[in-house]
Design a protein around this nucleic acid. Structure first.
Lengths: 227, 227
DNA sequence: ACAAATTTAGACAGGCTTGTCCAATTCGTC
DNA sequence: GACGAATTGGACAAGCCTGTCTAAATTTGT
């Protein structure tokens, strides 16, 4: 704002780049070591900046932690909404389209770096910062579950599913397609592509056995309905 | 061993009592504060003993942590197996019996003190102690899931369910009956009795919609089969 | 009641961490 | 090329924590 009104935004350039670098390194270290075990020197080293720069940008450890959680929440939410936008509203084949959707959701939102980090921070430090995580809860699961439920309701209304309570169905869908990944998630690991696919396939099959419309010849019906 | 061979076991009496008291206080503090943030003085105070006593019993912080995890793992496993033993092998009414079983499982094993503590420690510190948590994984989920799958297989063999892969069904059963408690678990909270019941009811209904035998008049058939 | 073991409170050194300060240096912009 | 802002490295005090040690007090078993 002060230095000059020339190129792009007010801070020169690498100022913001370093800020991001610090937040990312901090996310990694906070997750690995926990809040108390996280060491500012280590964060600075991992970000490739000096310790003083960390303090210049974020004030103190607690403010840095808050910035990390806000950043992760924002990016994860964006990813989840972007993925929900790819929900199959007019499925050619309900099963394979839902499996593909579940795999996308896992890959882009739950198993990726941001998703794993945010989950771990919430689990580990959620009780210590009630307002911060209440905010996450409202803007995250609160809104994304509603959005997903709306998509399932539409699918049911179009006759592809038979659902009583779309909110319950949405939560159960997520629970089912992740059923076989629980342990891996618990230990902070990253499931293989094959594990994700298998869990999604098994989950969607059960989901459709419970909520799918009965159909005499599935493949033919689907083909006719769409072609 | 040395002092006398008289009353019960070698350490007098409150020796062992204090040991247990320390482990329990340690579990609580490790969960609240994380491994790095846990303070031996605080653990000692919460256990009602002096700091030196903690060191006398457990050597150092890391050994104490291991003792805590071993203790929790053991008690949780015992609870889970005891609860699996109450699985309804000859259900009067499949739905209500499975709901009751799911509620028991949640109340006695997953939502209770030990269950919440163990889960949080695994999530937070699992990556730091690979062998310790590999041991938990083998003796915990590895064996309990098999045991539960065997019970579902028996239920299917007896004609109450229609299941392809009992292992998958067991995992999905657990995922479904906990589907609505995920957020609460994530934040380390304790769901109310009513929340547990509702999640279990919704989960079992979906589970039976997917795996239940079709039945024309459910109530009558169940009554006939049993009475 | 006595003797042995355990527990306690407190002090203590050593190490690590946070957060601040400052002079020297680098970087981006004009 | 020169100016100003940002960055760096290092030193620094203050605080906290672990783990050890000691002498006194308490408990336990006989």
């Amino acid at each position: 704002m002060k230095p000059g009104v020339s190129s792009d935004t007010f801070p020169p350039r690498s100022h913001e780049a370093k800020r991001i670098s610090v937040v990312e390194a901090a996310a990694s270290v906070f997750c690995r070591e926990g809040y108390a075990g996280a060491n500012i020197d280590l964060i600075a080293a991992e970000a490739g900046v000096s310790r003083q720069t960390v303090y210049n940008h974020h004030g103190d450890k607690e403010k840095l932690f808050m910035a990390v959680v806000r950043d992760l929440t924002e990016r994860c939410n964006a990813g989840i909404f972007a993925t929900i936008a790819t929900f199959p509203d007019q499925p050619a084949d309900v099963e394979s389209d839902l499996v593909a959707f579940a795999v996308r959701m896992n890959r882009n939102c739950i198993c990726n770096r941001d998703g794993r980090f945010l989950r771990k921070l919430i689990q580990a430090e959620g009780e210590r910062y009630p307002e911060l995580f209440a905010e996450w809860r409202e803007q995250g699961p609160g809104r994304t579950w509603s959005a997903l439920a709306a998509r399932f309701a539409r699918l049911a209304y179009a006759g592809h599913l038979s659902i009583d309570d779309p909110d319950v169905a949405a939560r159960q869908f997520l629970a089912l397609v992740n059923a076989e990944l629980q342990i891996t998630f618990m230990l902070g690991g990253m499931p293989t592509e094959e594990e994700v696919l298998r869990s999604a396939t098994n989950g969607v099959r059960t989901f459709l056995a419970a909520f799918g419309r009965r159909k005499a010849a599935p493949a033919r019906q689907a083909a006719l309905a769409h072609a």
